[in-house]
């Protein structure tokens, strides 16, 4: 569904991505992995149109979305759950969910406030609280719900379980499994190899802005040397 063809991305004179290639088939889960500063977040930002792509193309369902304004890319069906969650602090939980809600591509069973509250009952209890009054885990649920309300068919999650308590991590992972079961494609930046082994069809290791290794989550979990080499853990 999403095809990234040999993209280069630079911040000024500093080149971060070198001919990066990535494929995300419809309904599949792809994990982007690698140490900090290897270009994972930059790759996600390039897909969303938040950093300019130098050369190369990004296609969504065959349509070229390279360097389109980010609101057009989002409207084409990509939902972003950004690093650090970035909840709107001056909006309530309910407003965070409603502000960008839309069903532009006429999904048959669109995400609604009720469905998001059903997925995350905690958010329903906190509907009228400001986004900043939520716990880290709840904020993460809110960021996911906010992206779902735009009814994407690809959800991008940048470090969605980073810094969360074990219980909250578990809640996010089971939510992602449920979303996958509903047919949503996921692109995740993650380092939890155990969780990825059961969820991700493909894991892509990035080193210095290039794809260094690609394989399934199961392959990765079975090869500690590989994990040591690319992630240092």
């Amino acid at each position: 569904m999403l095809e990234i063809d040999r993209i280069d991305v630079s911040y000024g004179r500093l080149q971060v991505l070198f001919g990066l290639e990535l494929r995300i088939p419809a309904g599949q889960v792809v994990a982007l992995m690698g140490r900090n500063g290897m270009g994972k977040t930059t790759a996600l930002r390039a897909i969303m149109g938040l950093v300019p792509v130098g050369t190369g193309t990004i296609r969504l369902r065959g349509a070229d979305i390279t360097n389109r304004p980010s609101h057009r890319i989002a409207r084409a069906g990509i939902g972003l759950v950004p690093e650090g969650r970035r909840i709107f602090p001056n909006l309530s939980t309910r407003e965070n969910l409603l502000a960008a809600a839309a069903n532009r591509r006429h999904a048959a069973a669109p995400w609604t406030l009720e469905r998001v509250f059903d997925l995350f009952p905690r958010l329903a209890e906190r509907a009228d609280l400001s986004g900043t009054q939520l716990s880290g885990g709840e904020q993460q649920m809110l960021a996911i719900g906010r992206a779902l309300m735009t009814n994407p068919d690809l959800l991008i999650l940048d470090e969605a379980t980073e810094g969360l308590a074990p219980l909250a991590r578990q809640a996010i992972w089971s939510c992602l499994a449920r979303l996958k079961a509903e047919g949503l494609a996921l692109l995740v930046v993650e380092r939890d190899i155990k969780a990825l082994a059961t969820l991700a069809e493909s894991c892509v290791m990035i080193e210095k802005g290039r794809v260094a290794w690609t394989g399934s989550g199961i392959d990765l979990a079975a090869d500690p040397a590989l994990v040591q080499k690319y992630l240092g853990i």
Partner: peptide, 14 residues
């Protein structure tokens, strides 16, 4: 209000 607090994310949400 969303745009005033985080323009980039508001845009990335469509």
């Amino acid at each position: 209000r969303a745009g005033a607090s985080d323009r980039e994310i508001t845009g990335a949400l469509g």
